[in-house]
Amino acid sequence: MQDWLTVHEGSAPLVIGLPHTGTDIPPEIEARLTSPWLARKDADWWVDRLYDFALDMGATLVRTGVSRSVIDVNRDPSGASLYPGMTTTGLCPTETFDGELLYRPDQQPDAAEIEQRRATWFDPYHAALRDQLDRLRTRGPVVLYDAHSIRSVVPRLFEGELPQFNIGDNDGATCAPELTQAVQAACVVSGDSLVVNGRFKGGWTTRHYGRPDAGLHAIQMELADRGYILDPVGPVSPQNWPSPYEPERAQAMRSHLRRVLTACIAFADSHR
């Protein structure tokens, strides 16, 4: 196993993907960036810590430590947009969510380098994810839960304030409706805002693996990170972002997410 790739194997019928919690950037790439802080700005900050309780539930976790600015393992490897006509970032992003340039002039990766990065990081991450799904699916249906977070306000990507819970199943294509309903019901208990298939309908991972007819149910959860860390109002800077992880602040969200993951496991168990 590569040192940037972490796999915790569990026995429950639940695999959690953590594609955007990494912040590692190889020195030879970092030297070409306009700012190392900008290149880490759009990480799903602390989501791996937020969900670490899932190990005690028997979930399998697959995580890459590599920054999404090096390669985004939740994008279509062909380069096709997941949201045609809408602003989004690519397989090897060249700008932040806010439109700031990541690379110095003439330092962006070319097609050959993008392919090399894909072979180095993208392909092994998905091979590990597939191995774990195949391992668990021999016993019956399995749920792939892709875990994400984002700042509550990113005007270039969406209007206004993002709902707290953003559930995506690509308009019902990637999992049974009963699973989406169960996850939604678990979120409703929190009293916080939620949406199903809103701005975020599920990234490449959810869309690629979700085959409910074959017993593989994939669903994405995009959290507005105000639910577990201090989310600054207005532009962020190295002085106020990322906000530190505070266990006390995150405690309520962890309770909500435990309820969500319990619903995922119960759904899979009920179909075995």
Rank of each mutant, 00 (worst) to 15 (best):
V236Y: 00
E222S: 05
W241A: 12
S237G: 08
P242D: 03
Y245I: 08
S243R: 07
P232S: 12
Y228R: 01
Q239I: 04
P244I: 13
Q239T: 15
L230T: 15
S237V: 05
I219K: 09
L216E: 08
Y228I: 03
P242E: 06
S237E: 03
P235M: 11
P244G: 11
N240C: 15
P232E: 01
V233L: 14
P242Y: 04
M221D: 00
P244F: 10
D231N: 12
Y228C: 05
Q220L: 09
Q239D: 15
L230H: 14
L223A: 11
G227P: 15
L223K: 05
Y228Q: 01
N240Q: 04
V233F: 04
G227D: 03
L230I: 14
G227F: 13
P244T: 12
H217G: 13
L230R: 14
V236K: 05
W241E: 03
P244S: 13
P242A: 10
W241T: 10
Q239A: 15
S237A: 14
A218G: 02
P244K: 12
V236M: 02
P232I: 05
A218Y: 01
A224H: 09
S237Q: 05
V236C: 04
Y228A: 04
L223H: 11
W241D: 10
R226K: 14
M221T: 02
L223C: 10
P232C: 13
I219C: 11
H217P: 13
N240V: 05
N240S: 11
N240P: 13
Q239P: 10
G227W: 04
Q220K: 09
L216W: 06
I219Y: 12
R226G: 10
W241P: 14
L230K: 10
I229Y: 00
L223E: 02
P238Q: 01
L230F: 13
G234R: 12
H217R: 12
Q239F: 09
M221N: 00
M221C: 06
L230V: 15
A224Y: 07
P235R: 07
Q220T: 10
L230N: 12
P238F: 03
Y245C: 05
D231M: 03
P232L: 05
A224S: 15
S237I: 06
W241L: 08
G227V: 09
P232A: 09
L216A: 13
P235F: 09
P238V: 10
S243L: 08
S237L: 05
E222H: 11
Q239Y: 06
P238L: 02
D231E: 09
I229K: 00
L216N: 10
L223T: 06
A224R: 04
Q239W: 05
A218H: 02
L216G: 08
Q220N: 08
E222D: 02
A218E: 00
V236G: 02
Q239G: 11
Y245L: 09
S243H: 03
V236H: 04
M221A: 00
P242N: 08
P242C: 07
N240K: 09
Q239K: 13
P238S: 02
L216C: 14
I229C: 04
V233P: 12
Q239E: 15
A224F: 06
D231Q: 06
W241H: 15
Y245E: 02
W241F: 12
G234D: 00
Q239L: 15
P232W: 06
Y245W: 13
Q220A: 11
W241M: 10
L216F: 07
G234Y: 06
A224K: 01
